[in-house]
């Protein structure tokens, strides 16, 4: 894909994305949430989020909603990543390094299997 920078190029990108979106309309969207409070940031949340974005870009994953949130009150588990598959309960992961984020994206977001090794237990 050629590198793009003008708004005209962006319009083309939009049209292609729109076609793809119409095909997927019924499947629902997966939500990925990263905690970005002071503690999260100091613990490396920005690099964790970057790893998630890298995976989205590299594996060309459409229809993922990325959100960030403030402090959730679980400082010792930061950086925290939460995944919500369409129609399923929220799953929270703790102390997520960029490498762990890659695995969560691959196994949970793509594969639908919760990565139990990294999961924070209990109600959050």
């Amino acid at each position: 894909m050629p590198s793009v920078k003008s708004l005209d190029d962006l319009k083309k990108i939009r049209e292609e994305a729109l076609k793809k979106q119409q095909l997927k309309e019924t499947s629902g969207k997966t939500e990925v949430i990263v905690g970005m409070g002071t503690v999260g940031i100091a613990a490396g949340a920005r690099e964790t989020l970057k790893a998630i974005l890298d995976t989205i870009e590299k594996d060309n994953l459409s229809d993922i909603i990325l959100r960030q949130t403030g402090n959730v009150g679980l400082d010792s588990f930061e950086p925290i990543v939460q995944v919500i598959l369409p129609g399923e309960e929220k799953v929270s992961y703790g102390r997520v390094s960029p490498e762990m984020a890659h695995r969560i994206m691959k196994e949970h977001v793509l594969g639908g299997e919760i990565v139990k090794d990294y999961q924070i237990k209990g109600n959050i």
């Binding site: 894909m1 793009v4 920078k5 190029d9 962006l10 990108i13 939009r14 292609e16 994305a17 729109l18 979106q21 974005l53 989205i56 870009e57 060309n60 994953l61 459409s62 229809d63 993922i64 909603i65 990325l66």
Partner: peptide
């Protein structure tokens, strides 16, 4: 973009 998500891989790259 008019409604297309910013997290679309090509948009992110842009």
């Amino acid at each position: 973009l008019d409604g297309i998500s910013l997290t679309e891989p090509v948009v992110m790259k842009y």
